[in-house]
Design a protein around this nucleic acid. Structure first.
Lengths: 245, 245
DNA sequence: CGGCAACTTGACAATGCTCAACGCGGGTGG
DNA sequence: CCACCCGCGTTGAGCATTGTCAAGTTGCCG
């Protein structure tokens, strides 16, 4: 996998070579961050923007009772807090889940990127995909029973990990505990466990250690009512916003 | 209330007079749309962008079992499908709930707006607020019991309606059935009804016909664990993206 | 080998859903 | 003007799903 950032931004439209060179330069500044490390905390004044180049991270929000809820997974090429400089205080936290390679962008560096129209469009695009994903999650959690919720999440992860080359066949590394899955789809860890037993018994998945394999993708997607349209993988068909060229 | 669109975009930063004039011109093209009318349908190729100038609308997504889930409420100044031109197919539908005044923006008109840097920034901002709201809804539905979910929604509506001048004291018109509330927070209409009875019994709210009054805002907000930070009402503190000026 | 975190299982409680019936009120047609 | 109808709200009873608590078990890492 070359530069996941370029791949991601080119999902919307091709980038000029100069832009790609800039993005490659940015990518080279990535640093390793250990698993389970906070990158940004809710309520903080943002001072850097984070960008995942390798690994598995998440956005999460704390609840009053001490628990927390995961509101997004961040894979290579994803911005963790693209909006940070527009806000006084972050409305959520960001943390790594696995060992990651992460870029920290200063404000000036970020503005350098947004001055390139093709890149700015790509960033817009990526924001909209995030929004679409949130809508789908809302429907998933608000409207479907436990087995569908979990299956749906697994289907989405398979699709997204495929686009960044982090799958082997229909399998991938899942750096999440069952409690994490519960914090994502709004279920208790115990119930997540029972559902996973059931998915295993139905020979839909295999999950051992951190290794997940989807045994029957068709059936799992059918169970989950999974339609990846919301990820808008085909890229923008229509022309889109034209910021001063 | 003068032009809710200007108010909304100025939440992020001041607009030049020329921009305001353009927005006023746009606002003048608003047309009346009856309550409970679809403005855009999931799966369609988008050809216009919609903008609510008055009234109460929503975004929703259909579920396989024939039901549907509401994923956003749209109040005066809100864009219904800002992202439409970036996507081949809409990933959700939009409908009015009350009688509305709605602007339909053609692509060229829309691009005229996005060529103004201050307006473009405001649109960015508004997208980010939408995203923040979705995250909060996700936490609300995924992590809180029924009474908190409904209270939280009512608190949010009060706050948002206040900013557009659609409240009287702590009361407002709620053009939603109890089934609609259920489709928003992921509960059955019957259960919504029981919770509302309970909120009435606790003298937290009054709801008769389409008229809602919040009797004890403090206690309702405390019950809901409501913190409006996610709406970012104070506007952007930091400078933000600078598209080619 | 010990220890800790994650996973697993069982029993029980609680929250919320479904189904069904009925009241109320506004609108419509006779 | 009245009768009807239909959508919405309300209520009750029973059931299903999911949560909580508690007690193992497994497996990895030091």
């Amino acid at each position: 996998m070359p530069n996941p950032l370029i791949r991601k931004l080119e999902a919307f439209g091709p980038l000029p070579d100069a832009d790609k060179a800039l993005l490659d330069e940015v990518a080279r500044t990535a640093k390793e961050v250990e698993a389970r490390t906070d990158l940004a905390l809710e309520g903080e004044a943002p001072y850097k923007i984070h960008l995942v180049m390798d690994g598995f991270a998440c956005r999460y929000k704390a609840l009053a009772n001490g628990s927390h809820h995961i509101v997004a997974y961040l894979l290579p090429g994803d911005f963790c807090d693209l909006h940070a400089f527009l806000q006084k205080r972050l409305d959520h936290s960001v943390a790594t889940l696995s060992l990651c390679r992460v870029v920290e962008l200063s404000r000036s560096r970020f503005e350098e990127l947004t001055e390139r129209p093709a890149i700015l469009k790509g960033l817009w695009w990526s924001t909209l995909v995030d929004e679409g994903t949130l809508r789908e999650w809302l429907v998933n959690i608000g409207g479907r029973p436990a087995d569908q919720r979990i299956s749906h999440l697994l289907c989405e992860l398979l699709t997204r990990l495929e686009t960044v080359g982090m799958t082997v066949g229909h399998g991938f590394q899942l750096p999440l505990t069952q409690a994490d899955l519960g914090a994502t789809v709004g279920l208790s860890n115990v119930h997540v466990n029972r559902i996973i037993q059931q998915l295993r018994a139905d020979e839909l998945i295999t999950l051992k250690g951190r290794n997940l394999v989807i045994l029957d993708r068709r059936r799992l997607e059918a169970l989950a009512e999974y339609d990846p349209n919301y990820l808008h993988l085909e890229g923008g068909g229509a022309a889109g916003v034209q910021p001063r060229a």
